[in-house]
Write a protein that binds this DNA or RNA. Sequence first.
DNA 1: ATATTTTTATGCGACATCGCAAATAAATAT
DNA 2: ATATTTATTTGCGATGTCGCATAAAAATAT
Lengths: 235, 235
Amino acid sequence: MDDFKAFELPDVACGGEAVDPQACACEAPRKRGRPRAFDPDAVLETVLEMFWMRGFANTSLDDIAAATGVSRPSLSATFGDKEALYLKAMERYRQGISGQLDQVLQCNGSNDNLRGIINRYFDVMIRSYTGDVDGESEAGECLGCAFMCTALNEAPRHESIMSVLQGTIEEFDARFERFFVKAQEMGHIGSNQNPKVMSQMITSLTSSLAVRARAGASRDDLKAIVDATTSFLFP
Amino acid sequence: MDDFKAFELPDVACGGEAVDPQACACEAPRKRGRPRAFDPDAVLETVLEMFWMRGFANTSLDDIAAATGVSRPSLSATFGDKEALYLKAMERYRQGISGQLDQVLQCNGSNDNLRGIINRYFDVMIRSYTGDVDGESEAGECLGCAFMCTALNEAPRHESIMSVLQGTIEEFDARFERFFVKAQEMGHIGSNQNPKVMSQMITSLTSSLAVRARAGASRDDLKAIVDATTSFLFP
DNA sequence: ATATTTTTATGCGACATCGCAAATAAATAT
DNA sequence: ATATTTATTTGCGATGTCGCATAAAAATAT
């Protein structure tokens, strides 16, 4: 019902009504029946943004069908029911962030300094939290963490969402604990410091940024908070 | 639709069908028309728990009417529409927390040590986040922060919720900045420390606890995190 | 060409949800 | 007692929402 024209799929490959057989450059020798008229990945991206902005319960399958141009039966044939669709969209989101963190969170080069790495990490998160999609910030912005904003709401009602929520927290914790243990081994932090505590500081600040961003804090607001904290933690 | 018998109002004062005129010990000389058959505060408490568990969009006025025994027209006459009801329930929640913090967050007595005060603060928050209502933890538990879990979801769709969210964040920030400024004046933290940074650490950790609690972290899990952090910050 | 397979289109049915309107009930004011 | 005020009860109407079932369309296999 709400105006969601902004979500209409652009004419990307695989987006037309009849798709050029070779267009979807999937190596597979072409399956048998009628080919899909849409790109599932593009649909998931749109779906992610809708859930991100409006939440799970406030986003109906009709809305999604209208915004993507894919009918409800096609959606359910491809992705399953609403919950499965949500989980697939969130998994894509998680992988996107995770991939960026893999690149940023490495302390290999011995000339890296820890504070620089951590600042780069927060740059990534802040960009994501303040409405950055693929480089430039956009109009009908998605603010905060897509997963936090929606999963905290739904977790008690959906076993599967709860368990993804737990898994995501654990993944973050584990990632940073590994990182700081390694950083300590390489002498970037003193042996009197506790990697677990450092890790908790970073994940806590991260969740705080997500909340503040959702409430409309600007990129500079968040940067200021991060700078203050990192200059305290890594003087 | 869901089973919500747990929310049926107990027979508290003002809960029966015809209320004893003097029972509601409001000093006011008794208003004119037919007296209310329910206690608005008790209703708000129930409503809070429902929104807390299920979120705003997943809680229908029919559910609320069934759980409280108050019909929809009475609800809307007393509280306004669904959004207004939500805001009133959250305001009650905010005041409840705020009142507890007023008691806990004082560094008057010169023998208070800062770490003790902060630990008491986190005790309050952890109890609230892990399903404590009025002292004992309950069965159909409300986990995490009622406001975070619901408002993050709804903020972009509801101007009013967004603005309460911003206000709540500012209130927390201001509270802790005041606290640490005063603590510094009283010599509890060195003059080289930055009250703003300390404040950010505490609010960040708080939001992190809320998230973890919603994901099912136990009281002890959260205490361990708090202890590790506070012993680092206030050695 | 015909059959087979897969996707898409259309639409129905059951139910949920909200806001509102009209009638009824219970108190105080005069 | 009667009028007035405020709450409650009952129920309707419009719309939203989801899952499913059936028919049509577009491709490949034989």
